[in-house]
Design a protein around this nucleic acid. Structure first.
Length: 356
DNA sequence: GCCTATGATTTGGA
DNA sequence: TCCAAATCATAGGC
């Protein structure tokens, strides 16, 4: 007569506790309970979006997911343990009752009552487990959200790429959207620390904003750095020029190069510097050495100015030291009117037609 | 622990 | 919307 009593039956008679439901819902929403994938990352994506930060949070993202799955695992293990313990204990009590039934009459009601007491006890333990799991998730989430502001230094290579661009476009260090994208891509590729860590266009913009302001504030301090990058790029420039010269010797000099990256036109006029003096400064093509004559010219001129007292007669541009900074601190007047192509012209446009 | 460097955010102007 | 400037907050070196 005891055999007819189902443990499961007693287990399912949980009253719909609103607090328990809340906890269950939250655990489900956070992806701790329920299906393995989706909830957690959805929650983290929502958190990232709500924070207003750009989409890139890869490191925090994966960190968050890792921690969340850890919590999830612990939760499920514990839950299973409790359920098992509950069943074992129930069986144990029922066995005891069975034995007692030999000596005294035990009504099914009494058994049911005992079982339900046990289950209530265990479900309150489960509730605690759910509660502490929720707390853990909340802490994790808040930590994740706080981490938005956390600063992570760019890799050395990324900084180098950005600096190279900055110093080779010192006359107008305002990369176009395309250039920023290119830089972001390039920087992300070279980021060695942190798997999946990328640098966004917004970060590139931040970097240039910070760099411009800090450079302007303390040119002296950045002089050495500028020299370093100028020299560095000058080597590239020299190689590129050599290659171009070789190219012009082997090919017809009139062959127009359609502006494809990796090669460039050498204007046949003597004032190549001037004709290449795009106010926007950049025909930046990312990794392609020699794609940006302007930057190379900037760099070469800087090196010359540093080593041999370069004066501004070439094109009338003050290329270095205060680098096109006007009295008001603007960068714009680095260009002479004759060399200004169009201030509204988007930087990054490649002027492949300058040789005509 | 202090100091500097630096990435991110905020604010205000054009 | 982009930028300059100021500011915040953390990383990293000492």
């Amino acid at each position: 007569m005891l055999g007819g009593l189902s443990i499961r039956g007693a287990q399912e008679e949980d009253p719909p506790d609103p607090q328990l439901m809340r906890l269950d819902n939250m655990l489900l929403a956070e992806g701790v309970a329920g299906p393995e994938k989706g909830g957690g990352s959805a929650a983290v994506a929502a958190a990232a979006t709500a924070s207003g930060s750009p989409t890139d949070n890869s490191i925090e993202h994966s960190d968050y997911r890792a921690k969340l799955s850890q919590i999830r695992q612990i939760y499920h293990t514990e839950l299973e343990k409790y359920e098992q313990a509950c069943n074992e204990f129930t069986t144990h009590v029922m066995n005891l009752l069975r034995e007692q039934s030999r000596t005294r009459p035990i009504s099914p009601k009494e058994i049911e009552r005992m079982v339900s007491i046990i289950h209530r006890k265990f479900s309150s333990i489960q509730m605690q487990l759910k509660q502490s799991t929720c707390e853990a998730v909340m802490i994790l989430r808040s930590r994740f959200l706080d981490a938005r502001r956390k600063r992570r230094n760019f890799s050395k290579q990324a900084t180098e790429i950005l600096n190279e661009y900055f110093y080779s476009h010192l006359s107008n260090p305002y990369p176009s959207e395309e250039a920023k994208e290119e830089l972001a891509k390039k920087c992300s590729i070279t980021v060695s620390q942190g798997v999946g860590s990328t640098i966004t266009v917004a970060q590139v913009s931040n970097w240039f904003g910070n760099k411009r302001i800090r450079y302007k504030k303390n040119i002296g301090k950045f002089q050495e750095e500028a020299n370093l990058y100028a020299a560095k790029t000058a080597v590239n420039a020299a190689h590129a020029v050599a290659a171009a010269v070789q190219n012009s010797q082997t090919n017809s000099p009139t062959t127009p190069n359609s502006g494809s990256s990796g090669s460039f036109n050498l204007p046949n006029s003597g004032d190549m510097f001037m004709s290449m003096q795009n106010p926007n400064g950049d025909s930046y093509q990312g990794a392609q050495v020699g794609a940006n004559v302007q930057s190379q010219v900037d760099t070469l001129r800087h090196v010359i100015s540093q080593t041999a007292g370069y004066n501004d007669d070439l094109g009338g541009n003050s290329m270095y030291s205060p680098h096109g900074l006007d009295a008001n601190g603007g960068w714009q007047d680095a260009m002479t009117p004759s060399s200004v192509i169009s201030p509204t012209e988007g930087p990054g446009s490649v002027h492949s037609d300058t040789s005509n």
